[in-house]
Design a binder for these strands. Structure first.
Length: 995
RNA sequence: GCCCCCGUAGUCCAAUCGGCAGAGACAGCGGACUCAAAAUCCGUACAGUGUGGGUUCGAAUCCCACCGGGGGCACCA
């Protein structure tokens, strides 16, 4: 399609963006020449579909091999970047670091014979486009698509070897159609605890109907049978089991954003991650995903994936599984029990009081009308009652104080507060009465919202006990000389026995097991596992998101109960986002905690109402419905895009099972018996350690349980790339000044801008810091290959590093040297020697470099690979100053350079006379014979210090090396005739003589 | 407060199993080319590995403590 223009015509130095001026040779590798070469090769790769990756079946199967018989599953490699959100600001030089890194690896693997699947999509639903729409009235789709085009152009300019046919955006109707379909599968499933996996809800219904599974206990208690329930009642029972369900639950309501947020989107100080607005806990009816059902598998299966330990740790921490016991404490004069969760049941004998969370409903049930005086009839401690006349007053006053404090204030003020409820509970191990307090250091949201307090072994309880004058009783023997307060370490139990059980002397683990057995036998408690993980709040009051494929009967339910969400049939998909006049949800003053969410879709009245005979509501027949007007959160599309890349044109399924098996299926032969399958390498920033990666794993497991996919994990290997950060500069007022205009003082002592001193700080690249550098600028000034090489040379992929524009020239100089080695700068002719034989030195270096980069590339150590290539080029420049580089050296040099600098390499490869792209050319293989040196130089250490050197044949035995070392004149002199105490010979390394 | 990661020339970074601290780049310095400059090329100096102990024939590498930087969690019972 695109004819190859002669370099001579377009390589006009006068048009060079970097304006090299007169005297530059006409065929020097300048930015202008690089730009011309790069555009030409990008066009050619696109026209020839060089990087189109075949599928084993379907529309992407090779035309001459429709059943994929030529594809070897053992050689496939699925390489993936975390896809970007296409923001209006475009890419800066930090963004493509990972994209280039994966591209280099993909190109290397392709030349190593692997079938590489690599593409790039867009996570395109999200708040910024919607906020822009609210401000300007521009449809978010218009903004989003323009941004995607901009990103595509920027990415294309970098020469990434993507299969562009597979690129998808989560906002494509054909994409979100399947996001909705997957939602319906999740909604249509329940988690079978006994089998530990999701099953279709119809199977649950059948088990209830047949009696194979007992009904929930409240129905059993009412003596009701399945068949006796009305249809809406049955539906409500089933809804209580679904993996996607509506629930009235305490959620994070953010008035300023006008939406609810997931726990993961709220910061530790109780504000929105986006915008930093106050967030309030409110009970609202919202969609939830039952991710907690998968807590154990999400935690356990981390053992089987190749991920950074830090990310695994963050996920484990977020899931927060802890083993412990639930223990019931009878309340004196009440029929209620206070139930607590503890991870230290072994310390039960040390419990001296109890605490329940202020919001805990049991508080009102157990608080007596008047303050008791259980023992002596004397006045209660004023610290306990807060000076109030009755428990009810004290509790109400305390609750007001707690409610008035923000999460941040709670966090800062760590001194313990609380108030006595007036109730006493009984310690089941010894019958001691324990006063029950309310205090805000106990959280309603964790465990049972109540604790037994053991000040002897818990510092928080110690602090509280000290404030309120409560007894402290140690039940674990601290070590000799322990002078701390609460002792949380290991040790034998003490003070822990009654008539029927004794823990004394037992280590903690045995004491726990013993007391749990004892409690269980008496019905006072049992072993229990707790999780920090909460169900995933899945609805948002936003416009720019996937609509839920769900509707509600317009007339309500026949029994008058709360309305039941009805799944739309597959044939109704996609539920297309309607056009609206107003994109904003109703927002409120940031601190208006009593406001309630209102979705923008609710105003699309024509879209909201429809009539249909829904299969999910068979009793009703043809009827009026109203659509769900919430939309899905931004995380939905990213939960499964790795599956759609595989089969983007499939209109029958989200992904063909055979295609999924080929690219993602488990490979126990290569990765061991427990291999879960998944993407071979997933590269992205560590900021998604919890949210995206946890959600995607959850969806994958549901799809796996339902038999739609063969991989039980989405990403077999995860790699976190580092960040590119940048210096920013502020003037004396603290205002940021343009970083590119700042100059360093000659003596390196400081920095100035327009002559005034400025101070330097280090941080993210961004508009607000006025330190943005874009890949577009770098490509214009140096060319994409130089830019790529620079980014890859500055450090290993996992390292964060500062951007430094002035260093980029080093990469350009290297590429100019390579170009000059092969091409005459005056007339553009090839200057390689067709028949020349390199010297042994050159040959040895060449093969050492081949060997080295073959290790560096797959390890993503591109900085050291580049260094080796530079070393080789520097050697060749010295060896062949007048040209005449042998072809046998030029070709491997070009091939080795090609993953890093593909355009330049393709151009040189073509000049070397090869008509086809080098993308599938075999990567050079070292000649082992040239890797072994003929002689080895050994440093000779005497007492660990290098004193001499000897050169011996590489074949010398240890004894020969030892003899040669001891015969060395300097060694003889140093030893002065004495026998060395010891001689250590490290083969190939050194000799150390100990006097 | 707890957990994880990282500290090597002025700067960014290298250094298989514990075995000669230096591959590469920038900046610096000297030189070539130039009327001059830019660009380009050639040549060079620079640290003993954050600090203090320990193990070892030998430590950047292993262990302990501390200091500094980054990240995560944070009253999670």
């Amino acid at each position: 399609m695109t004819a190859q223009p002669d370099v001579a015509r377009s390589g006009n130095p006068g048009s060079d963006a970097s304006e090299p001026g007169r005297g530059v040779p006409p065929y020097r590798y300048t930015a202008a020449l690089a730009g011309e070469i790069e555009a030409r090769w990008q066009d050619r790769w696109e026209a020839e579909e060089t990087f189109a990756t075949p599928n084993p079946t379907g529309p992407l199967a090779p035309p001459d091999d429709p059943d994929g018989s030529t594809l070897d599953p053992a050689e496939k490699f699925y390489l993936m970047d975390m896809f970007p959100y296409p923001s209006g600001a475009g890419l800066h030089v930090g963004h493509p670091l990972g994209f280039i890194g994966t591209d280099v690896l993909g190109r290397f693997l392709r030349m190593s014979g692997r079938t590489v699947l690599h593409t790039m999509g867009f996570d395109a639903f999200g708040l910024p486009a919607e906020q822009y729409a609210v401000q300007t009235g521009t449809h978010p789709r218009t903004t989003t698509e323009a941004n995607i085009e901009r990103y595509r152009a920027q990415i294309r300019r970098l020469g990434l070897a993507h299969d562009k046919r597979r690129s998808v955006a989560t906002t494509d109707v054909e994409f979100y159609r399947w996001t909705q379909w997957i939602f319906l599968q999740i909604h249509g499933s329940w988690f079978d605890e006994a089998q530990g996996r999701a099953r279709p809800i119809a199977e649950l219904e059948a088990e209830f109907a047949s009696g194979a599974r007992p009904l929930p206990s409240h129905l059993v208690e009412q003596g009701r049978a399945w068949s006796a329930l009305s249809r809406p009642e049955q539906d409500r029972v089933l809804d209580g089991f679904r993996l996607a369900y509506l629930a009235e639950a305490p959620v994070n309501w953010c008035p300023a954003l006008g939406t609810v947020l997931s726990n993961e989107e709220v910061t530790a100080d109780g504000r929105s991650e986006r915008g930093n607005f106050p967030v309030f806990r409110r009970r609202l009816r919202q969609w939830m995903m039952r991710i907690t059902a998968y807590a154990d598998r999400l935690a356990d299966d981390l053992d089987g994936v190749d991920w950074p330990e830090s990310v695994k740790a963050m996920q484990r921490n977020w899931i927060g599984r802890s083993q412990g016991a639930q223990v019931r404490f009878r309340v004196v004069g009440s029929d209620r029990d206070v139930e607590v969760f503890t991870t230290r049941p072994d310390t039960l004998f040390g419990a001296t009081y109890m605490v329940v969370a202020p919001e805990h409903p049991i508080v009102d049930a157990i608080a007596p009308a008047a303050w008791p005086s259980p023992n002596t009839g004397e006045e209660l401690d004023g610290r306990w009652t807060g000076g109030h006349e009755t428990p009810a007053e004290a509790i109400a006053a305390y609750r007001r104080v707690v409610a008035s404090r923000s999460d941040l204030e709670r966090q800062e003020a760590r001194e313990k507060t609380g108030v006595f409820t007036g109730a006493w509970a009984v310690n089941p191990v010894d019958g001691r009465p324990l006063p029950v307090f309310v205090a805000d250091y106990v959280l309603m949201g964790y465990g049972t919202g109540a604790i037994m307090a053991v000040p002897g072994q818990d510092q928080r309880d110690w602090d509280f006990a000290t404030v309120f004058g409560l007894p402290i009783r140690r039940t674990v023997q601290p070590p000799e000389g322990f002078d701390g307060e609460a002792y949380t370490g290991a040790g034998p139990a003490i003070n822990s026995s009654n008539d029927s059980v004794s823990l004394d002397g037992l280590p903690i683990d045995e004491a726990k097991a013993t007391i749990i057995d004892w409690l269980s036998a008496r019905g006072d408690g049992e072993a229990v596992v707790q999780y920090k993980l909460r169900d995933w709040l899945f609805s948002r009051q936003r416009y720019w998101g996937e609509p839920f494929p769900v509707a509600y009967a317009a007339d309500g339910e026949t029994d008058g109960g709360p309305s039941i969400p009805r799944a739309l049939p597959d044939s109704d998909l996609p539920v297309v986002l309607p056009d609206v006049d107003e994109y904003s949800p109703k927002t409120f003053a940031p601190d208006d905690r009593d406001s309630a969410p209102e979705s923008p879709l609710a105003r699309a009245t024509e879209w909201v109402s429809f009539a249909e005979d829904l299969p999910s509501d068979p009793e009703r027949g043809w009827a009026q419905y109203v659509r769900e007007t919430n939309t899905m959160p931004q995380w939905a599309g990213s939960c499964w895009y790795h599956l759609r890349y595989l089969d983007p044109f499939n209109s029958e399924r989200f992904c063909d099972p055979e295609v999924e098996r080929f690219w993602l299926g488990p490979r126990p032969d290569r990765f061991g018996p427990g291999d879960p399958g998944g993407v071979d390498l997933y590269v992205g920033g560590v900021e998604h350690a919890v949210l995206h990666l946890l959600y995607a794993r959850f969806w994958q497991k549901v799809l796996f349980d339902l038999g739609y996919v063969s991989a039980s994990e989405p990403f077999r290997r995860l790699f976190n790339q580092g960040y590119i950060q940048a210096w920013a500069y502020t003037d004396h007022r603290g205002v940021y000044v343009p970083a590119e205009e700042v100059v360093e003082d000659v003596d390196g002592s400081g920095f100035t801008w327009n002559g005034q001193p400025v101070s330097r700080e280090y941080g993210k690249m961004g508009k607000s810091l006025r330190n943005v550098v874009t890949p577009d600028e770098m490509c214009a000034t140096y060319g994409a290959d130089t830019f790529r090489l620079y980014e890859m040379s500055t450090g290993p992929m996992e390292a964060s590093r500062p951007w430094s524009t002035r260093d980029v020239v080093g990469s350009q100089r290297f590429l100019q040297r390579v170009w000059r080695l092969l091409v005459d700068e005056q007339d553009g002719s090839l200057r390689v020697d067709e028949a020349g034989e390199p010297s042994t030195d050159t040959l040895r270096l060449l093969h050492r470099v081949i060997d080295g980069v073959r290790t560096d590339f797959p390890a993503m150590h591109y900085n050291t690979a580049a260094a080796k290539l530079i070393e080789l080029a520097n050697h060749l420049t010295k060896t062949y100053p007048e040209g005449g580089l042998p072809r046998s050296v030029a070709e491997p040099l070009v091939l080795m350079l090609s993953p890093l600098c593909p355009h330049l390499a393709e151009e040189l490869w073509s000049k070397l006379g090869h008509p086809r792209s080098l993308a599938y050319e075999p990567f050079p293989v070292p000649d082992e014979a040239l890797l072994v040196e003929e002689t080895v130089e050994y440093p000779i250490q005497v007492n660990g210090k290098v004193r001499s050197r000897i050169t011996v044949p590489a074949s010398a035995t240890e004894d020969e090396v030892r003899a040669a070392a001891l015969a060395d004149p300097k060694v003889v002199e140093l030893l002065g005739g004495a026998e060395p105490r010891k001689v250590i010979v490290v083969p190939g390394r050194l000799v150390n003589i100990v006097k």
